[in-house]
Each structure stands twice: as C-alpha cells, then as structure tokens.
Amino acid sequence: MAGPETSPAEAILEVENVSLRFGGVQALSEVSFDVQSGEVRAIIGPNGAGKSSMLNVINGFYHPQEGSITFKGVTRRRMRTHEAAAQGIARTFQNIALFRGMTTLDNIMTGRNLKMKRNFLLQALYLGPARREEMEHREFAERVIDFLEIQAIRKTPVSRLPYGLQKRVELGRALAAEPDMLLLDEPMAGMNTEEKEDMCRFILDVNGEFGTTVVLIEHDMGVVMDISDRVVVLDYGRLLADGTPDEVRRNPLVIDAYLGTVRD
C-alpha cells in the first residue's frame, strides 16, 4: 500500500502540532505523531526532552498552548484528567503515584472506580445491588492480581512493598480500568533484569491478549527495540524522528542526539 502508513481511521490517537510552555521553558514544540489502535508505541529521548510532558498532555493534566489531541475520533484542546480517564486512557507514573495508605487490592480496586455506579446510600447499607457490584469488581481485580502474579501481597499496604512490586501494582491499577490506551511512564526504571523481563512480558501480554494500545516511555534501548512497534524520538521538545525501531536506530539525527551516547 502506498502513501502514509497511517490512515486516520486506524489511528486511536493523533497528536497535532502540540506546543507546551512553562514560563520560559519550551517543553514541547510543534510535536505531531499518531498512535495506531493496538500497537506498542515508544517515546524516547534524553532527560528533559519532554516525554513525560507529552503523556501529561495526552491525558489532560497539562494543557498545551497550541495544537490538538484527537482520541478515538474526538478532538479536544482542554479537558480534565478524569474525563480522559472516562474516555479510556489509563496511565502509570514516572515517580510511583500509588495510594500509599491502601492495600494492593484496594489500589487495584480504585482502578475499577469508573465502572462502579451504585450510590453511597446503597453502599452504606451494603444492600443487594451495591454488594453484588462490589463482588463483581472484586472478581475482576482478582483477575488482574492473578495476571500480574501478585496474589501474595494482596492485603499488604503498598507503602511496605519494594519498588519493583509497587511499579507492578501501579500497572495493575491502570489495567483494572480496562483502558483502550495505556500510558506507561518509564515502567522499568530502576528494575533489575529479571524484573524488567517480567514487566516486558506483562506489557506484551496486555497488548496481545486484550488488544490494548500501549504508549510507553523507556530509557532502556534494548527493551524499546524489543517490544515496540514504532518509536517517537523527542529532543529538546522537538520531534526528532518517528518510525520503526530499525528506522529510528539508523537515523543519523537520532544517533547523534541520543543513541550515539547510549549505545556501546
């Protein structure tokens, strides 16, 4: 097929000409790219390139001064983050943002929140519908727990968990929302090889089994090349390159700006 690989119909997310400033800092300038439904899309770039800011723009936490975001055919400039969540975007954070006072199970249950409808009066009485609803979602949460192999820490307060497990619970919380698109901000940072392998497996499984679109930021090039379908490269807030891992790896601009310094 000739022409651009991505026709708008298959793109779940389109980022167009997004510019974001913080006072004098230009965090993003005129960035455009798209994400196709069902793919694993990586965003890479040196520190401070604007990767996290990009995710924050996508899920409505930052409001870009220019440009637009189109998700599942709906275009918007500004939106509240909880609206993005309602549209089917879930994410994890570079610095773990779990609810520290709650157990693993409760943290994952919070991910089900948008799917729970019963009002507080029924809940206070814990009557029929509220009770059934709670059970139903508990079952889903247990499936997530099984999937991520964290049964043993179900009732442990997350603040007592080691870093690697916390990252896993955070992924669980995002998965519990059954999102259409999952934004992962450095899901493997600070992990050892074994933990990284587990995490890669989970990401690929989510993507493969449920068809969830994944956008992830990662510094480990090996991982990026292994699991992503296409890669966006940011540098100083600008889009430096966009293409398959192979294309990106061969791109002289990228080698110059980024890979050259990282690769052996």
Partner: peptide, 18 residues
Amino acid sequence: RSWMAIRDMDIAAEIIGF
C-alpha cells in the same frame, strides 16, 4: 476508596477518574 485515594494522592486520583 475514593476518599482515601484523594487523601493519599489527589492528582493520581483524578487521573484515574475520581
């Protein structure tokens, strides 16, 4: 859970959809 989520980390809570 929604209360505790807001208490523990309000930004994350909102991003999750509270």
